[in-house]
């Protein structure tokens, strides 16, 4: 298990979180190379189907990030995302997938450090959990 490298799908909203991830880059903050990011305009675009699909296909973790509540570029998208992810989290848990494998994090464009730390923490947590129960 020491060699286990988790495969993680990340969703990032264009305005805050994707910009935060870019800032982490500009600041050369290192984090593990386990995530593959899918850019969406708003975290509200991410649907439970996308997340379960990722797990079904073999993701060890799914990371969703958007603007902080009240900061949404569109005003309302992340509030809906929050509800949507809450539901998805329940589904994921019922499917016997550890809920920690799905993480919703609010990251702003100035939070490069937070992006890097969040990914680091998430990857570490996934490593602790080991390979997805569906892939073991």
């Amino acid at each position: 298990m020491a060699d286990f490298e988790p495969r993680i799908v990340a969703f990032a909203c264009n305005w805050c979180s994707y910009a935060g991830a870019d800032l982490a880059g500009v600041s050369r903050l290192q984090y593990p190379p386990n995530i593959r990011t899918i850019r969406v305009m708003c975290s509200g675009r991410v649907s439970p189907g996308h997340i379960i699909r990722a797990f079904e296909h073999g993701a060890d973790g799914v990371f969703v990030s958007g603007c902080h509540i009240n900061d949404c570029h569109y005003g309302f998208g992340n509030r809906w995302a929050e509800k949507q992810i809450e539901k998805t989290l329940k589904l994921v848990e019922m499917l016997g997938i550890e809920p920690d494998r799905l993480k919703l994090e609010w990251i702003s464009a100035s939070e490069g450090e937070k992006f890097a730390t969040s990914i680091r923490t998430f990857v570490e947590r996934i490593k602790e959990l080991g390979r997805s129960p569906l892939q073991r």
């Binding site: 708003c42 991410v46 809906w80 949507q84």
Partner: peptide, 10 residues
């Protein structure tokens, strides 16, 4: 429409 896509996922 501003294209956020929240309606599409709901």
């Amino acid at each position: 429409c501003k294209g956020c896509g929240t309606c599409a996922s709901h």
